[in-house]
Measured scan of single mutants.
Amino acid sequence: MGSVRTNRYSIVSSEEDGMKLATMAVANGFGNGKSKVHTRQQCRSRFVKKDGHCNVQFINVGEKGQRYLADIFTTCVDIRWRWMLVIFCLAFVLSWLFFGCVFWLIALLHGDLDTDYKDDDDKSKVSKACVSEVNSFTAAFLFSIETQTTIGYGFRCVTDECPIAVFMVVFQSIVGCIIDAFIIGAVMAKMAKPKKRNETLVFSHNAVIAMRDGKLCLMWRVGNLRKSHLVEAHVRAQLLKSRITSEGEYIPLDQIDINVGFDSGIDRIFLVSPITIVHEIDEDSPLYDLSKQDIDNADFEIVVILEGMVEATAMTTQCRSSYLANEILWGHRYEPVLFEEKHYYKVDYSRFHKTYEVPNTPLCSARDLAEKKYILSNANSFCYENEVALTSKEEEEDSENGVPESTSTDSPPGIDLHNQASVPLEPRPLRRESEIGSRR
């Protein structure tokens, strides 16, 4: 089982795998120059863009038009607004034209077009017409509009002379109601789609790998820009990579689940303020055997998904993003964004995407760390350097704002901070800030 798991979770494809794949392509008759073999020097295209759209195009789909027309309502909801407006206008105009032609044909076959009612006051002739005051196609078209929109100006009306005319008036009224219901329903469904809710759900630009509770963890940050909550919010993550099976089958995008606390339930989050999602790199993680150097040379993509129900409509929305291997910062942490004021908490989104480097973060893999092949620094050293990194950030910001350097908390000259780390230190809580992250 261990060997199978290692093969499945191998992220960085070796040169031997690339040569094996190329040999397979030639042997199977696919070596026509169009096949692409992804190596370390040639990274694959992003499968999920940063804005959440999937970078996929469908080609050679059989009976595409028929399949889309069979699900016309979903098609109308998914198309762009400009095409929705075109369909909206065409549906009414074509129905008016169709029934206008029908009423014109009825008048033509009944002989109503030969009668001039402007110079004739004989009401008996008017009563013999199928539709009064309809003696041309324009008049028939206007009567069709008046019937379907129930305008009723009063000059044109159907008589009991022709039952077919009466039937067409009733039929057009029913068709008009159906068109109204369909168009209004599609427009309302399109307006109520929770897709735009994703514009106020954000992911951090970069993911980070750092120590948390004595273990290497992959972390990324999510935030909600609205005050309205995302009900039943939960997160998922998958690692996408290519691999070759033991039988020699090439899988271009193998999807591997990344555990973010599904078993323990901590994948469900209360997204009021930005939260750091934590994936513990343990023996079940696809990143277990990867060191910093392996991450730098790897070719994979981590897709992160945030799902929840919109509070206003109770409709489920899904926000997506992805991180390539070069977008994962090893040995970094996110800057705090949640600050405790006197009577409330304040979230500073200008710090949302910012990170700071944490010294002495192990550069080895989580496996080597678990097997004690890498000796961690003293816990006080880690905490102290973590505090120094934050303090230096604040000093830089104070210097930019014009604060005198004498007010900063610099260490005395001639003292090495790293050498001082081995000395037991008193706890130094942050002056006014605390970061709330997901705790395992």
Results as ranks from 00 to 15, higher is better:
2 G>R: 03
5 R>Q: 04
8 R>H: 07
10 S>F: 04
13 S>N: 09
14 S>G: 08
15 E>K: 03
16 E>V: 05
19 M>N: 09
21 L>M: 03
21 L>R: 10
26 V>T: 10
27 A>Y: 04
27 A>C: 05
28 N>H: 10
30 F>K: 15
33 G>V: 09
39 T>C: 08
39 T>I: 09
40 R>A: 13
41 Q>W: 05
42 Q>S: 08
44 R>Y: 09
49 K>S: 07
49 K>D: 11
49 K>E: 04
49 K>I: 05
51 D>A: 12
52 G>V: 00
52 G>C: 01
54 C>N: 08
55 N>R: 08
56 V>R: 06
58 F>S: 13
58 F>E: 11
58 F>D: 15
59 I>E: 14
60 N>T: 07
62 G>M: 13
64 K>N: 08
65 G>Y: 15
66 Q>T: 12
68 Y>F: 14
72 I>V: 10
72 I>P: 14
74 T>A: 14
76 C>D: 05
80 R>G: 04
83 W>F: 04
83 W>K: 11
84 M>Q: 06
87 I>L: 13
88 F>R: 02
89 C>V: 13
94 L>W: 02
96 W>Q: 02
99 F>E: 00
101 C>S: 08
104 W>R: 00
104 W>D: 00
108 L>D: 12
112 D>F: 00
113 L>E: 01
114 D>Q: 14
118 K>W: 02
122 D>Q: 01
128 K>N: 08
129 A>T: 05
131 V>D: 02
132 S>P: 03
133 E>M: 12
137 F>W: 14
138 T>H: 03
141 F>W: 07
142 L>W: 02
143 F>N: 01
144 S>M: 00
145 I>W: 10
148 Q>K: 03
149 T>Y: 03
149 T>R: 08
153 Y>H: 07
158 V>T: 00
163 P>F: 07
163 P>G: 13
163 P>W: 15
164 I>V: 09
165 A>Q: 03
167 F>A: 11
167 F>L: 10
172 Q>H: 05
178 I>D: 02
181 A>L: 14
185 G>P: 03
186 A>P: 04
187 V>L: 08
190 K>R: 08
192 A>P: 04
193 K>Y: 07
194 P>Y: 04
199 E>S: 12
200 T>N: 10
200 T>Y: 11
201 L>I: 12
201 L>A: 12
204 S>M: 00
205 H>C: 06
207 A>L: 01
210 A>L: 09
213 D>L: 08
216 L>E: 01
217 C>E: 04
217 C>Y: 06
220 W>M: 04
221 R>M: 02
222 V>G: 02
227 K>E: 05
228 S>Q: 13
231 V>T: 10
240 L>V: 10
240 L>M: 05
240 L>K: 02
243 R>I: 06
243 R>N: 02
244 I>C: 11
245 T>S: 10
247 E>R: 06
248 G>N: 14
252 P>L: 08
256 I>W: 12
259 N>F: 05
264 S>K: 14
266 I>F: 11
268 R>K: 10
268 R>Q: 11
270 F>D: 11
272 V>A: 14
272 V>Y: 10
272 V>L: 11
273 S>Y: 10
279 H>Q: 01
279 H>A: 00
279 H>E: 01
281 I>H: 00
282 D>I: 06
283 E>M: 07
284 D>N: 15
287 L>M: 07
288 Y>G: 01
289 D>L: 06
290 L>S: 07
291 S>C: 09
296 D>S: 05
297 N>R: 08
297 N>G: 08
298 A>Y: 03
298 A>W: 05
299 D>F: 05
300 F>D: 00
302 I>A: 01
302 I>F: 05
312 A>D: 05
313 T>F: 07
316 T>H: 13
316 T>R: 08
318 Q>T: 08
319 C>L: 09
320 R>V: 11
322 S>D: 02
326 N>K: 06
327 E>N: 01
330 W>Y: 00
330 W>N: 02
331 G>H: 00
334 Y>D: 00
335 E>V: 05
338 L>H: 12
341 E>V: 06
342 K>N: 09
343 H>N: 07
347 V>S: 10
352 F>E: 00
354 K>G: 13
357 E>N: 06
363 L>R: 04
365 S>E: 00
366 A>S: 09
366 A>P: 03
370 A>R: 11
371 E>Y: 03
375 I>T: 14
376 L>F: 06
377 S>P: 15
378 N>D: 09
381 S>K: 05
381 S>I: 05
382 F>L: 13
383 C>L: 13
384 Y>M: 15
384 Y>H: 14
384 Y>D: 09
386 N>R: 11
388 V>Q: 14
390 L>W: 05
394 E>Q: 12
395 E>G: 07
396 E>P: 12
397 E>Y: 08
399 S>I: 12
400 E>N: 06
400 E>R: 08
402 G>H: 09
404 P>F: 09
405 E>I: 10
405 E>T: 11
409 T>A: 11
412 P>F: 10
412 P>S: 10
416 D>F: 06
417 L>R: 07
417 L>I: 09
418 H>N: 13
419 N>P: 06
421 A>C: 11
423 V>M: 13
423 V>N: 12
424 P>D: 15
425 L>I: 13
425 L>A: 12
426 E>Y: 05
428 R>S: 11
430 L>E: 14
431 R>Q: 04
433 E>K: 12
435 E>F: 09
